[in-house]
Each structure stands twice: as C-alpha cells, then as structure tokens.
C-alpha cells in the first residue's frame, strides 16, 4: 500500500491543499495509507528555563491538535481513515527526516500562502522540502 505523508500547518492554503488532494484520491487504484503531520516550531530563548518540559510538550500538543483540526475534519467527512503526528522542530527538516525514517512513499504538500516576493526572501517550507527530500514530492497547487 502506498504510504503518503501530508504536512499540515492549519493555514488556509494548507487546508485547501488537503481538500484538493482528497479530490485526487479517487485516482488511486488502492486507497493509500494517509498520515497527517503538524510540525511545531520550538519555543526560543528563556521559556525553557522557567517552564518544565512536560508543560511545553503539552502546549505543543494542544497547538498541534488545533492546527490539525480542519484537515482531520475534511478527512473524516470524506470517510478517509488517517493517522496524525505532531513533532517539534524546524518544519522542513522534520518533514524530510520523518518521511525518510517512517519509509513514506510520497510527500504531498501545498505551497504556503505567501506572495512570490516573501517566498523568495524567506524560503518557504515547501521549497526546502522539495529541495531536500529524497522521496518524491507531490506539490498540490
């Protein structure tokens, strides 16, 4: 069975990409195994010297669940079974490493909702994933 990783950040663009991908799913002969992944940026600076790591993990988990809500709803509505994951780290690095480690066959990702100029300056997560992934990436536009 094809194993597909869908990184999700909860933005409108990301949710749209999920919706579009659900449309595409009927093209697959056999239903692929779908995993949603939300990557939480680590908190910087002083926070970790005052707050215990368990509370921080809890915070990331709550935030991650919130970001995943819409995508999970779309999946449920379409009757697609899926798993989901929340990991803390640099988004692009984590997506690429996770896909490799868990032996995914494909990463499906939408372009983030930034304008061309901002995207150029900041280097979007999508660009980095496309550049560094050793696994085929499907860009849903």
């Amino acid at each position: 069975m094809l194993k597909i990783l869908l990184p999700v950040d909860g933005s409108d663009a990301s949710n749209q990409a999920i919706k579009d991908f659900i449309q595409l799913l009927s093209c697959y002969k056999e239903m692929p195994e779908i995993h949603l992944l939300n990557v939480q940026l680590p908190l910087h600076g002083n926070v970790s010297s005052f707050i215990d790591s368990e509370s921080i993990a809890q915070y990331h988990q709550d935030e991650g669940m919130e970001r995943l809500t819409a995508a999970r709803q779309f999946m449920d509505q379409a009757g697609i079974s899926h798993q989901f994951h929340i990991i803390v780290g640099e988004p692009a690095d984590v997506i690429v490493a996770f896909a490799k480690e868990k032996l995914f066959d494909r990463i499906v990702i939408g372009p983030r909702g930034v304008s061309a100029i901002k995207g150029l300056l900041l280097g979007s997560v999508t660009n980095k994933v496309v550049q560094f992934s050793t696994i085929p990436v499907l860009l849903v536009k």
């Binding site: 939300n38 993990a57 988990q61 989901f84 994951h85 929340i86 780290g89």
Partner: peptide
C-alpha cells in the same frame, strides 16, 4: 543542539 532525526518525538502518539 539541533534535533536529530532519531530523537523525533511524536506528541500525538497517544491520541492516535
């Protein structure tokens, strides 16, 4: 101190 791929912790593990 960068996160090594092996050290990735899935926070949604229990909820899954």
């Amino acid at each position: 101190a960068r996160i090594k791929p092996a050290a990735m912790i899935d926070l949604a593990d229990n909820a899954n």
